[in-house]
């Protein structure tokens, strides 16, 4: 399911111009990270994808649906949105009921709901906690419960808002694993993030926003190598990219694997 955004502009009631003409195409199955400084318009942009915000002018089309013609609850069948703070949505007596809430709202048949909930709980490693009260979980696992409750809705597009902020390394690994599984299942994943290393490891395409406009848009390695331009929106390239540049290597480096390959190419052959 493609996302087509045409000349999107958004002005808050306070008069703040948050988005100043954004045009984008995100194809089905793409893994996109959106980066940029605070106030660049990242959250404002993705809140248009499921109708939480409506364009001041321009349009956002999800598949064949114009977001202005459908309610948020209807768009929820196509776009899942994982919010930053799990405590601002959890309310059920146990994890199982919580995760089933979304798919139930979408009106799926009960067998389908059961299957989706089971899969989402397995992906988020919560299968053993079905009867636990969500608020008895640690904050890290509450985050996973909120994640499961969105994944269980089985939407073709999933949005993550700052998924790794405040999470420990183990949970970042779990979240990366969920994103990889979603990719395998052919889902479009869009993530807002400050965590450039996370972005370099898990995404194919990066969009850098600055002051309500697209600053850079392209494959992850190319975008993250543009150190000078990224500096305008206060984004530092990943540590390994910077190290590669410092070493004077011409090829852009994104992931650990790429760094190791580049390094091994340069190792003097043992005689």
């Amino acid at each position: 399911m493609n996302i087509t955004i045409q000349d999107l502009r958004f002005t808050y009631p306070t008069g703040l111009d948050a988005l100043k003409g954004i045009s984008l195409n995100i194809k089905s199955g793409e893994q996109v990270a959106i980066v940029g400084q605070n106030g660049a318009g990242k959250t404002t942009l993705v809140r248009h994808f499921n109708g939480l915000l409506q364009p001041t002018s321009g349009s956002v089309i999800i598949g064949d649906w114009d977001t202005q013609k459908h309610t948020v609850a209807k768009l929820a069948s196509r776009v899942g949105y994982v919010f930053q703070n799990p405590d601002e949505q959890l309310f059920s007596k146990d994890v199982l009921t919580e995760v089933a809430f979304g798919p139930k709202n979408l009106g799926y048949a009960s067998e389908k709901i059961n299957a989706l909930v089971k899969r989402a709980l397995a992906l988020t490693e919560l299968s053993a906690e079905t009867e636990t009260n969500p608020y008895d979980l640690s904050p890290a696992w509450r985050k996973m419960a909120a994640l499961a409750s969105t994944i269980a809705m089985d939407t073709p597009i999933v949005i993550f808002d700052e998924p790794t902020t405040g999470q420990d390394a183990a949970n970042v690994g779990r979240i990366a694993n969920v994103i990889a599984e979603l990719k395998k299942a052919g889902k479009t994943v869009i993530t807002i993030t400050h965590d450039i290393d996370f972005c370099a490891e898990n995404f194919e395409r990066v969009i850098a926003l600055s002051k309500g406009q697209v600053l850079l848009d392209g494959p992850v390695r190319e975008v993250l190598a543009q150190e000078e331009i990224l500096a305008q929106t206060y984004v530092d390239p990943p540590q390994l990219t910077r190290l590669g540049k410092r070493l004077g290597w011409p090829e852009p480096i994104g992931t650990q694997q790429e760094f190791l390959q580049a390094l091994s190419r340069r190792q003097p052959k043992q005689a």
């Binding site: 809140r47 499921n50 939480l52 309610t71 948020v72 609850a73 929820a76 069948s77 776009v79 899942g80 949105y81 919010f83 703070n85 601002e88 949505q89 809430f101 979304g102 709202n105 979408l106 409750s149 969105t150 809705m153």
Partner: peptide, 18 residues
């Protein structure tokens, strides 16, 4: 603000409010 976010989060989970 919290109330507004909760409303948004649940609508995003398919909760009909209209």
């Amino acid at each position: 603000r919290k109330g507004a976010t909760i409303l948004d989060a649940q609508r995003s989970r398919g909760l009909e409010t209209e």
